[in-house]
Design a protein around this nucleic acid. Structure first.
Lengths: 193, 193, 193, 193
DNA sequence: TATGAATGAGGATTCATTCAT
DNA sequence: AATGAATGAATCCTCATTCAT
């Protein structure tokens, strides 16, 4: 009850532990699905369970944190592309990149899925950030005639989620071919020009 | 040559109960995910747990049965379309239909996902049946110039799974628009003609 | 509610089934221990579980019946020996025979164990019969100087049980040597003569 | 080279609880047989079931631990006697002692039985220790002419198990008389001298 | 009478969460 | 703040027993 604020700065070692747990959780959940036990995460992080629960008071909170972390990274990447010279190429590149790295990992596609929808909490924050970065990119790509004009961010995200998820079962090449088809679908039809 | 079953015709009441359990399982798993408890399925079916386990000796077996049941239905529908006059329309119609009825229900997309991959057991049987029906439809649609020639069943299924899954979070309209984009991506490009 | 008596004569096929169940039970319990399920007994007997429970209203009852059956056989064998020329040899032979055929089978040693004690019910009946046959044999062997005079049936039975049980873990030869030692212990000491 | 344990010294309270669980298990299993439920053991120990399973990850493991604990005690007692002045008296005393304290308690005779056989795991360790202590005692007793020369440890153990087990049904006095007969059987015959 | 399906209490085990050290 | 032991509700599954066919 020292300061009062929402989230004291956190001692250096505590911050380090939080990061370790988060990283371990990402790895474990990606590898074994969200059903993996908290214990396993603790072991992977090299800390006691108590520590996991101190930082993330609930398993759900831990899962959310993993998603947020992922969204944050995606948002940053999208942000970095927002002003790219060739918006169309950037958008398609981002799509491909996301889908590839998701590579069927539950934890990642989960994060993506949340971005397309309005979940409460911090998740929303980064989801929104990514959405808006994507929105700008999409608008520019459409203005440039690289993407058909009747597509919205929502569909775009849904398709990213979809192709990512498809990869959970299909192999890498099938996923790549599916992605190619979707990207083609996003291009303007000849008739539209 | 039915992989395992066939033991005996099953008494009338037993068959009725088996069906009730299966229906309940489909509903429960679709609504709450495959994590729902067997107890809940039993309650939903209005039978004792013992009955559930008598018919499906393992939770996994129950889940598999749900999938098989779905695949069976899908396979039947695909079969029915195999000789349709307009193969392209039939294929697109099937795609839309599947994606719509999946409507984000775990159990359904799960079934679909299995079809694209070679899981062992009875699941494979119906998955294969559906794949081959789809294969015929696809080949004809390609011959008719309704679908681009470089698409395979694997991608087709992957996209069906993907769009279905995308619907788990996105709303109905977003899903529909995503589906439209994918279908467009499947059509031959102007240049190809 | 036809006759009234304690146990109607039982239809021919019913009697046959009872015997089949009993035989199966003996085999199954001997092989897998008394923990084996009633279902397994039914399957081994080639009848439905309902039939098992019709003849033996309880698993305990079934176990008891197995014991009784075994005791009955032992009693008959003991009876047959009661008038043997050489009582000592007969007694020792019986001991060896019992111990050998028990061969570590739970079901059999169980039966034996019950014989030495006053359990209620039918078990007692055959236990008593065997005890008395053994008693006569023992008395004669003692009169002949083949067995030390201070031994009672109770100890004799206890030792039969004990050596039989020892066989559950030890191998056959060890059991045989143990039996030899016990038999030696039963003989009169040199000094006693 | 302790087979599995040794991981870490175990916190003081944890060690206390482990001991409590073990003691409770010994009591419960001795009283009601190994079929008694783990729940019952937990209740008897005054801890939650979770605690039982934390210390003994399996019911089988718990049973094994009970056996090991007993074997350890027996091994210690046998060790203590190994150098006794009068080896014969010590051996007979040990036999009697073991048989008496087993007193028909399942758990105890179980432990004994395991000693005579080579079960894997830690059980073997203490079983072996006891066997070798007994071996030395036996050899000396035989050299002193207190025990017939053609007896091996295996038989000795088998007889200890046997007489202990016999006590499960027979009363205390009958068991004592049976033990006396066995001990007599172990002595050298007059003719052997 | 025989059958085998239905029942549900009971048992082993897991795991998120709390709390003493 | 970190640890890891303790907790017990929840879950899957088995099996003796009952009952409709």
């Amino acid at each position: 009850m020292t300061s009062a604020g929402a989230s004291r700065p956190l001692r250096a070692d505590a911050r380090r532990n939080r990061a370790r747990v988060l990283a371990a959780a990402e790895e474990v959940f990606a590898a074994k699905g969200t059903g993996a036990s908290t214990d396993e995460v603790a072991r992977a992080a090299g800390v006691g369970i108590g520590t996991v629960f101190r930082h993330f008071p609930t398993k759900e909170a831990l899962l959310a944190a993993v998603l947020v972390d992922h969204l944050r990274r995606l948002a940053e990447q999208a942000d970095a592309l927002a002003d790219a010279r060739d918006a169309g190429a950037a958008l398609f590149g981002f799509f491909t990149h996301v889908v590839e790295q998701a590579g069927g990992k539950n934890a990642y596609t989960g994060a993506l899925a949340e971005a397309g929808v309005d979940v409460g909490g911090t998740t929303a924050e980064f989801g929104a950030r990514m959405r808006s970065a994507l929105e700008r990119l999409l608008a520019r790509a459409q203005r440039d005639g690289a993407v058909r004009p009747d597509v919205g961010v929502a569909e775009l995200l849904a398709l990213m989620v979809g192709v990512s998820r498809a990869g959970e079962h299909a192999g890498r090449e099938v996923q790549a071919r599916a992605a190619a088809i979707v990207l083609d679908g996003l291009r303007p039809r000849a008739a539209d020009i």
